[in-house]
Design a protein around this nucleic acid. Structure first.
Length: 270
DNA sequence: AAATTCTCCTGAAGGC
DNA sequence: TGCCTTCAGGAGAATT
């Protein structure tokens, strides 16, 4: 599923191919995404030049002089660059054509979104209340400590709260907590500041590393075969419940936190 | 206000 | 082989 590193990888992958290019046509085959694709989007985006491809949290921003297309890949979405003549397959919901080139949105579960705004995209209702970017200096130990001390939820739920920090999904929250040796269910207000500072460092490290590894995914992405699992073999705990801890050998456990499976090592994490 | 639960959807996996 | 059930999962909406 697209986590922040994959969205950023996607951004870096498509940006050089569409920045400065003008949209010749937009085809919406199925507008039934998380929210309906606005009817006016196709007409408004057509004829516009993409000035910049931005990202906020897991939202991709195709910025033009007239407005900005806001895309979210949900959990099964992907963007591919293809020849415009490529026949669409099932779940290929939107094409943004640039002459002979096509940027195609594919999303089987339709949890993704494609919106349109003519105003400042950062002021859009979907973006305006989001927390800081995890890789920015605004997300540091002091910040997380200040937030955590006033909340009474599990630390993992706090990390995954987009109002606190964006882009940290189930995989990276799970991995960062393992690396920091913190039990995912520990109350966030009962974690010392030094440990929170370490946790922040681990969040940044795992995201940085995954983005760096995203280069490989990027080529696959551009070539067409959306190859999965580029990071999977390096995961310490995510999806490994029942298997031995790679650090100490203890059988990993899993329990639900906020409706989400959360794997952890009962020996390494406290 | 914050915490919790519900919801969207499809494909994969498991049971029989 | 195949049908039925269960579940995952981002994140906004609804509820407590």
């Amino acid at each position: 599923m697209p986590e922040l590193p994959e969205v950023e990888t996607t951004r870096r992958g498509i940006a050089p191919h569409i920045t400065g290019r003008t949209v010749s046509r937009v085809i919406v085959r199925d507008a039934r995404l998380r929210w309906p694709v606005p009817r006016r989007l196709a007409a408004d985006l057509a004829g516009q030049m993409v000035e910049h491809v931005g990202r906020r949290a897991k939202y991709l921003l195709l910025e033009t002089a007239r407005g900005t297309a806001i895309l979210h890949l949900g959990m099964s979405g992907s963007l591919r660059l293809l020849p415009a003549a490529s026949p669409p397959r099932t779940h290929d919901h939107v094409d943004v054509l640039f002459g002979e080139q096509c940027l195609r949105l594919h999303d089987p579960r339709r949890f993704g979104a494609m919106l349109w705004t003519e105003d400042d995209p950062l002021a859009h209702p979907r973006l305006r209340d989001l927390g800081p970017e995890p890789l920015s200096t605004a997300f540091d130990g002091a910040y997380l400590h200040a937030v955590a001390r006033h909340r009474r939820i599990a630390i993992k739920a706090l990390l995954m709260d987009g109002h606190v920090v964006v882009g940290v999904g189930n995989i990276y929250a799970t991995e960062a907590l393992f690396r920091a040796g913190i039990h995912p269910q520990r109350s966030c207000r009962r974690i010392s500041r030094p440990r929170l500072e370490q946790l922040v460092g681990e969040v940044k490290a795992v995201l940085d590393y995954a983005i760096a590894r995203g280069g490989t995914t990027l080529r696959d992405f551009l070539n067409e075969s959306g190859q999965p699992g580029y990071f999977a073999q390096e995961l310490f705990v995510y999806g490994r419940a029942g298997q031995p801890c790679k650090r100490c050998g203890t059988r990993l456990k899993s329990r639900a936190i906020g409706q989400r499976a959360s794997a952890y090592c009962p020996s390494c994490q406290h």
